[in-house]
């Protein structure tokens, strides 16, 4: 059940397999109440996330993108998230030049045991996106077709 009132927004989450996906699972098993706007894509490691995934997601009409991986020094592959941190920080600072509000993309670290923290992260991010409202959409038939499909999938 959505915690937040009103229409669901399209939020996409890229979660690393070893920590944050486990964290989300822990939150689920613990039956922590969470907003349901987020759609999770599981990736092997935050280092696997090409920042272009996030750009493409946003250009295709997502209202927000959340990335979560293992805490620094805890990466299953030792250093994947260190690289990810640099890439994602650059992206975070770059996005506003496109006219995409800074808050539409965030990245953070959640470990597999941190069910509670996952709940807080999702809730906080979803609230943040709802405050920003639906993202501006690219005009044109190609873009609206994608949106329509996305709407249908939700």
């Amino acid at each position: 059940m959505p915690v937040l009132k009103g229409k669901e927004l399209r939020i996409v989450g890229f979660l690393c397999n070893w920590c944050s996906y486990g964290g989300a699972d822990t939150a689920g098993v613990g039956r922590f109440n969470q907003p349901t706007d987020l759609r999770i894509i599981r990736v092997p490691c935050s280092g696997r996330i090409d920042p272009l995934f996030i750009m493409k997601t946003l250009l295709n009409g997502a209202d927000g993108v959340l990335v979560s991986g293992c805490h620094p020094r805890d990466c299953h592959y030792a250093e994947g998230n260190f690289y990810a941190r640099r890439r994602l920080e650059v992206l975070h600072r770059f996005l506003p030049i496109l006219g995409i509000e800074p808050g539409r993309f965030e990245y953070t670290w959640v470990s597999a045991s941190e069910g509670q923290r996952w709940q807080q992260v999702v809730t906080r991010f979803t609230e943040q996106i709802h405050k920003l409202g639906p993202a501006p959409k690219i005009a044109g038939p190609a873009a609206s077709e994608t949106l329509r499909q996305m709407e249908a999938a939700l």
Partner: peptide, 25 residues
């Protein structure tokens, strides 16, 4: 399949982001 062949702003813009990001640093 990153980009479609459509004549759409989305694909053209996306390409510039690919270019920019591949040049980061």
């Amino acid at each position: 399949h990153w980009l479609s062949q459509e004549d759409s702003v989305r694909d053209k813009w996306m390409f510039q982001l690919i270019h920019a990001y591949h040049l980061a640093g």
